[in-house]
Design a protein around this nucleic acid. Structure first.
Lengths: 206, 206
DNA sequence: AAGTCATATGACTAGCAAGTCATATGACTA
DNA sequence: TAGTCATATGACTTGCTAGTCATATGACTT
């Protein structure tokens, strides 16, 4: 975490540093991101940087933390209390909020994608850790419940299907998060419908 | 492409260099792979390296070329002449051969994944270029044909479905290519069945 | 034996990186 | 006014990188 000196900074200067860091991490992997570049862009000295953060990793984790905080605000009622809602409704909400986050925070999205696409990097293990596994488990619980309630046919392989839905959702959001601004809203709704239709045809109870 | 001097080398020495390069590119992105590391591992001098290859990119492209050659040997009759075979058979073959390649050539697979996961890198554009787009188009042609023949229901969005099948196949192979050796053959067959079942339920004509 | 030519070498250049540290500033305190 | 303390600075160290080049080797030719 950033040092006290960082939080003591005037809001404006702090934001300038965050902006500079995001600009660098948007366009570079963790390894190839340069602190020299960041401080030059934020117009602070090398020494100051190291009085705000322990090292590059410290700064990076802070940016990721900010992203997670932002993402939290996109949780819908159905996501917060999934068992009280229909399975397909929950899945739809998750994808919709994912798409909306990507739309509203393209810079965070880019940084997140760079992280997600480098699972072999040590920093991935440190940050994502068991998150992926937990997500699979969550999907499995939802699927099991949906089979109980009769929403989903019972002859699927739950673990496998959970993984596939997770993967497909991620790819779906990654791939389509570059829709142009003007047709965004309609494009989103339409895409989501196609996606859900594919999914529902695949596993919905007949 | 490598220089003549490289091809004049005794087979054994050439292989040692390829091995060293693969070891490095398996565990590092193109940028962070180190020529110093490669020459040290291959036990050749810096000067020699630059008499075999123009630069790091030259070597890297050669490795990718070797991988493509290997992959070519996995093409099945159904893949070579897809319109003479059933749609789901072709898709099944493509995934099966993808899985088999991953199993038999885990080192190439790892290198390929690192490349595929960095679409923002200049080298990606240079090597993959429009390959992805071509793949989408190929899937679209197959889907259109399958709709004509009545294998696939006609009320799907072809372009969207093509993308999703492509993405899902890639992820499926990536994710499952780490099955353990002993249960490989049965595991593969079972997985493929689950995958195809999900797909067929999703888009097969009723 | 003398000459030629492909191949091999590693010291060297130039550049960039992360992180350190002695020094400076300037506000607030006693 | 003198002292203290948080903050700011950039030259510097250390360590890495890709790529170059003068020099050396040794096989084969004339």
């Amino acid at each position: 975490m950033p040092k006290d000196t960082f939080y003591n900074l005037p809001e404006e200067k702090r934001q300038k540093i965050i902006d500079a860091a995001m600009l660098e991490f948007e366009n570079n992997s963790f390894d190839s991101a340069s602190i020299n570049q960041i401080i030059s862009s934020a117009q602070i000295s090398k020494g100051s940087f190291y009085q705000y953060f322990d090292d590059k990793k410290d700064l990076y984790k802070h940016i990721i933390e900010l992203m997670i905080q932002k993402k939290m605000t996109y949780i819908t009622p159905a996501m917060q209390n999934p068992f009280a809602h229909g399975f397909f409704e929950v899945i739809r909400d998750m994808n919709q909020s994912g798409l909306e986050f990507a739309k509203n925070h393209p810079r965070f999205t880019k940084i997140g994608n760079l992280l997600l696409r480098n699972p072999s990097h040590p920093i991935y293990l440190e940050i994502i850790s068991g998150g992926q596994e937990q997500a699979y488990k969550a999907y499995e619980m939802l699927l099991n419940r949906a089979i109980e309630t009769g929403e989903v046919r019972s002859n699927i392989d739950v673990a496998f299907t959970a993984k596939m839905i997770f993967k497909l959702s991620s790819e779906f959001i990654l791939e389509e998060s570059d829709l142009t601004a003007e047709n965004w809203t309609e494009g989103l709704a339409e895409l989501l419908n196609k996606f859900m239709s594919l999914l529902e045809n695949g596993i919905k109870a007949k």
